[in-house]
Write a protein that binds this DNA or RNA. Structure first.
Length: 423
RNA sequence: GGAGAGAUGGCCGAGUGGUCGAAGGCGCACGCCUGGAAAGUGUGUAUACCUCACAAGGGUAUCGAGGGUUCGAAUCCCUCUCUCUCCGCCA
């Protein structure tokens, strides 16, 4: 959520900047400012009325104490009007506040100046590419065929017990999955992140704080009985660890990591995008989250980007890095890098990580602040990234490393898997 | 799930209708003291919004959350949430 003072100070800049996200903010901004004026004047009236009524109440107290009952009772009659007026103003203020809030949450985060213009994924800017695209010889299979050939993932079984998009990992497939999780966590810890295990369901307030609500309501599984949401990413519980807190500047940056299963309804997805491991309702992911000082977040973003690409390098996967264009950056993000690996049998790039700087967009909503050197309380910046999402990594590993005798396991994973080939 | 107790500032803890944003202590910050430190001592130490120059100053709100009674509520009433104790159930 944008801070109201940013809009108040330079609405034109907000409107212009949001055009890059192909978002026409003009009418919303005008309404916000209109409500803002009303809100402030109402608050002033209410405050003044309360101040008056308070001082009268004090007077009455004094009069009773000094035994001047008559005068006190007389004054008491005069105070009746405050009650009505206060109630009226209070209701109006509450209404205006919620109106302003509901308008503010409609505005996406301002894109960073380096975000390229554009509308579709084709307009994303490739800012790096590394590794050789493998030239596979002989019979080449897509990962879903490899999965059944080597009996490591059973999609049909998952469909039977839950539904499409809930695969069952088996034998070496399950072990490989576990190996990847351990590898990613160990790497993150080496990099200075603190490991967390967090709830897989969150309450409304948490989903709201990181921006899943109200905008992405339909994307989450909702347990209506207890009003809990299945997390679509560990970002939600991990970032919320710091909701409503005021940190000391010396505590920053805070680097957290967590492995979690992630749950997404993916309503409306179809076709080859959802085949095999490409898009699932439940998948595993290791997430990294940082809370930084306001002036350090872009430095941190680059650091996270190179950390993630380092992982891909260690896994020997060919990858490229995209700087997302205005039309493709998410609602809450100011700048996002996507990492994609090349999947040799499908012959396509698969997104395996998304690293974003939210600046104060999340921290404003969740009141995550720190005291700077002058003792002033300021909003912290939050960032997060996948490091990494498992299914597509697995898909690329299977497809790229297939050979006549099975599937080769990359060096770095062998200590974790205990085997170097799946056959 | 049943019965009971409770929720006050960074922490502990007073406060049962009147000037309480809240005693006292601890912690923390700065100063004095000291060769240095400890002890001692003095001062300060919440958040949000409004006014305003995001200054100073001023106003309002906040004692788990929401509502009510009252001229006036941390204090009384109602609802909800959470915590603790006992019982039940249980990975």
């Amino acid at each position: 959520m944008l801070q109201i003072h940013v809009i108040r100070e330079d609405k034109q800049k907000v409107i212009e900047t949001l055009k890059k996200k192909n978002f026409d903010a003009e009418s919303i901004v005008e309404r916000i400012l209109d409500v803002d004026v009303k809100r402030r004047s109402t608050q002033k009236q209410l405050d003044d009325t309360l101040a008056e009524s308070k001082s009268k109440a004090r007077e009455i107290g004094e009069l009773f104490k000094s035994g001047q009952q008559d005068k006190a009772n007389q004054l008491r009659e005069e105070t009746a009007k405050y009650k009505v007026l206060t109630k009226e103003l209070q209701d109006k203020l509450t209404q205006l506040e919620s109106e302003q809030e509901s308008l503010l949450v409609l505005l996406p985060n301002l894109p960073h100046e380096s975000v390229p213009p554009g509308k579709t994924p084709e307009d994303n800017e490739v800012v790096g590419q590394e590794g050789d695209i493998p030239e596979l010889e002989g019979e080449v299979s897509a990962h879903w065929d490899l999965c059944s050939k080597y009996d490591i993932i059973d999609f049909e079984l998952g469909t039977k017990i839950a539904g499409a998009g809930f695969p069952v990992y088996k034998g070496k497939g399950a072990k490989l999955q576990r190996a990847l999780i351990s590898f990613f966590l160990d790497e993150a810890i080496k990099e200075g992140y603190t490991e967390y295990q967090v709830p897989l369901m969150v309450n409304e307030a948490s989903a709201y704080a990181t921006g899943q609500l109200p905008d992405k309501d339909g994307q989450m599984y909702h347990m209506t009985i207890d009003n809990l949401y299945m997390i679509p990413t560990a970002e939600v519980p991990v970032t919320n660890l710091f909701r409503d807190t005021i940190l000391q500047e010396s505590q920053l940056p805070i680097k957290s990591t967590a492995y979690s299963a992630c749950f997404r309804r993916e309503a409306g997805s179809y076709g080859k995008d959802v085949r095999g491991l490409n898009r699932l309702h439940q998948f595993d992911k290791v997430e990294i989250v940082q809370v930084t000082k306001a002036d350090k977040s872009y430095e941190t973003l680059e650091e996270m980007r190179s950390y993630v690409t380092g992982l891909l390098r260690k896994l020997e996967l060919p990858f490229r890095v995209l700087r997302l264009c205005g039309g493709d950056v998410s609602f809450a993000s100011a700048l996002t890098y996507d990492m994609e690996v090349f999947s040799a049998a499908q012959k396509r790039w698969l997104e395996v990580s998304s690293v974003s700087n939210f600046e104060t967009f999340q921290s404003n909503r969740m009141k995550l602040r720190y005291k700077d050197k002058e003792g002033k309380t300021v909003l912290a910046h939050t960032l997060n990234g996948s490091a990494l999402a498992l299914p597509r990594i697995l898909a690329a590993l299977l497809e790229n490393n297939q050979h006549e005798g099975g599937i080769r396991i990359p060096e770095v994973l062998i200590p974790y898997t205990g085997f170097d080939n799946i056959s």
